[in-house]
């Protein structure tokens, strides 16, 4: 059932999932040479993911009644949702790191391998971001999700030194990412099973 739900989510949101990173790849291409590499990666993955995440939560909200009436435990939905969004994070981060390696190889005219460190940092930051989105979705401030791409653009472009410090320790970042993701799932599970569905 989980794989069916993931396939169904992808069918419904395929346009968003595929076209958003393509659009941002085009934009990022112009600032690729001007900005710090990690900054570009973060900008690309977070803005693309925030848009897809907003589309996904909007879809969930619109058809909540249909999903809730299905004879399935809530945990099945939670697992499918988490796996679907995790899969998107994984593919966007991999795509970003791979594309930048290809571009650098072309520019420097020598083979540049994708950076595993950057890939891990991107994954961790994106999972922290996903945890934030999941908790935000439970609150009255869901409308902020629509503004997230702009907030990300502003904050990342103005906070590079702090960002470097934050992502310096990968083990710490990894722990924060895992902890925040698990916490957000527990919070979602707690509130979603106790709330009225209007």
């Amino acid at each position: 059932m989980i794989s069916f739900l993931i396939r169904y989510y992808f069918d419904e949101l395929s346009t968003w999932v595929v076209l958003t990173p393509l659009f941002f790849s085009f934009l990022m291409f112009f600032i690729f040479l001007e900005m710090d590499l990690l900054q570009t990666h973060l900008l690309f993955t977070l803005t693309s993911f925030s848009i897809v995440c907003t589309a996904f939560f909007d879809f969930q909200k619109r058809y909540k009644k249909m999903f809730v009436l299905f004879p399935m435990p809530f945990n099945t939905f939670l697992t499918a949702n988490s796996l679907f969004l995790s899969g998107i994070i994984l593919s966007y981060c991999s795509y970003s790191v791979f594309c930048s390696a290809v571009l650098r190889s072309l520019i420097e005219k020598q083979l540049v391998f994708p950076s595993l460190t950057n890939w891990l940092i991107l994954l961790c930051v994106n999972f922290i971001f996903l945890a934030l989105c999941m908790v935000l979705y439970l609150t009255k401030f869901q409308f902020i999700m629509g503004l997230l791409p702009f907030l990300i653009l502003l904050s990342i472009s103005s906070s590079t030194p702090y960002l470097r410090q934050f992502v310096d320790s990968i083990p710490l970042l990894f722990c924060v990412a895992v902890l925040s993701f698990v916490l957000s799932i527990l919070i979602t599970n707690y509130f979603s099973t106790r709330r009225d569905i209007v």
Binding site: R62, K65, M66, L69, P71
Partner: peptide, 16 residues
């Protein structure tokens, strides 16, 4: 088990 035995129709159709 209950949901599998209940058919529901609201005043609006809640499907995509």
């Amino acid at each position: 088990a209950s949901k599998a035995q209940i058919g529901v129709v609201f005043d609006e159709l809640h499907v995509p």
